[in-house]
């Protein structure tokens, strides 16, 4: 008898597989009328989404269809309190910090043939279910980004597609009736190609360039916040705007967002270095590019991300902290993850 194969793409499968590893086809079904093209095997992505298997409130393991614990009713988080990702030469760490009730940040990493990508979404704490917004946005943005880049879309266009997918997912994160304060999230995306680094963002999560030797470290993004808008125009914040509102977000993803087209910035590094993508839980403690570069040890990407998260925790951990480290020039690295 012939070795079993996927009826859709003819890839080899094992008897116990439910879905084809190559194309995702449901193996209990016959081939579709139009054959499914196998995804390019070179492109893969991972994300931090996925809630804990055990209810942190009571230890219960059963959750209803709506995501609440069957015993104590606590809503299951969309992500873990602490999570570490490694994909080839990329790494990311996310942590809920000391003060927040749950981790509302989410991160995704992607590995393509000659490009590496990272996305961070930071759920807006004051919105309803921010963790649902950030995790669903990352999970929608990552495949959109990877698919667009696989089709040779320019990085800026691919980031635009990723933001659109993230926006659609965030807007639906709390169901058809999200209420008056619907889930909201920031979005930042870095695409590291052999000859350029492109970043795109909505909100106040950041990307930094940390050169190994040549040039100065710099922040590649400009926060979508009240204070950053005035700073970008080179004017002081008017006195009538209270200090407490100066940091307020002016753009975000979510059902009540009106402007979700990402700002884009592209540059070509003059030498090797690292692109560091992070949420405000880290950069609030090291906002300047130089001081952040100084705090980022030149060790393996995962160890670097761990060290920076620890730095933020030691400094108070006021907010959720997420750090992704992407090497330039892009390196696929070992594909252990």
């Amino acid at each position: 008898m012939a070795a079993p194969q996927c009826p859709a793409c003819a890839a080899a499968v094992t008897e116990t597989d439910v879905y084809c590893e190559a194309c995702g086809h449901d193996l209990s079904q016959p081939a579709p009328a139009v054959p499914t093209a196998p995804a390019p095997v070179a492109s893969r992505w991972v994300s931090s989404s996925g809630g804990p298997a055990t209810c942190p409130g009571c230890g219960g393991k059963e959750f209803g269809a709506e995501g609440y614990c069957d015993n104590c009713g606590q809503r299951r988080a969309s992500g873990m309190d602490h999570n570490e990702l490694q994909l080839g030469g990329l790494a990311a760490v996310t942590d809920k910090g000391h003060r927040h009730h749950r981790n509302e940040d989410a991160v995704g990493l992607g590995l393509l043939e000659s490009t590496v990508v990272g996305v961070i979404c930071d759920g807006v704490s004051s919105s309803n279910r921010p963790d649902a917004a950030s995790n669903s946005a990352v999970d929608a943005a990552m495949p959109a980004l990877v698919t667009a880049l696989d089709k040779r879309s320019p990085a800026g266009d691919a980031i635009g597609a990723a933001a659109r997918a993230g926006q659609a997912a965030a807007a639906l994160a709390a169901g058809p009736n999200p209420g008056s304060n619907p889930p909201a999230s920031t979005f930042v995306c870095a695409v590291v190609e052999p000859d350029a680094v492109t970043v795109g963002w909505v909100g106040d999560s950041r990307a930094y360039w940390l050169p190994d030797a040549d040039g100065e470290p710099k922040c590649l993004t400009v926060d979508d916040s009240v204070s950053a808008r005035y700073a970008a125009r080179g004017v002081a914040i008017p006195a009538e705007i209270p200090r407490s509102q100066a940091g307020a977000l002016v753009r975000w993803l979510g059902a009540d967002a009106t402007d979700t087209v990402p700002h884009l910035h592209t540059f070509t590094p003059s030498g090797p270095g690292r692109v560091l993508v992070c949420s405000d839980g880290l950069f609030r403690y090291r906002p300047g590019a130089a001081e952040l570069a100084e705090a980022a040890p030149r060790i393996a990407p995962l160890a670097t991300a761990q060290a920076l998260v620890q730095l933020a925790l030691d400094a108070g951990g006021q907010d959720n902290i997420t750090v992704a480290v992407l090497p330039y020039p892009p390196q696929r690295g070992d594909e252990h993850d």
Binding site: Y68, C72, G73, H100
Partner: peptide
């Protein structure tokens, strides 16, 4: 009447 929750917590109080 449900057990008190921390700020930011969400529970299902009744189905």
């Amino acid at each position: 009447e449900v057990p008190a929750g921390a700020v930011g917590e969400e529970i299902l109080a009744a189905r």
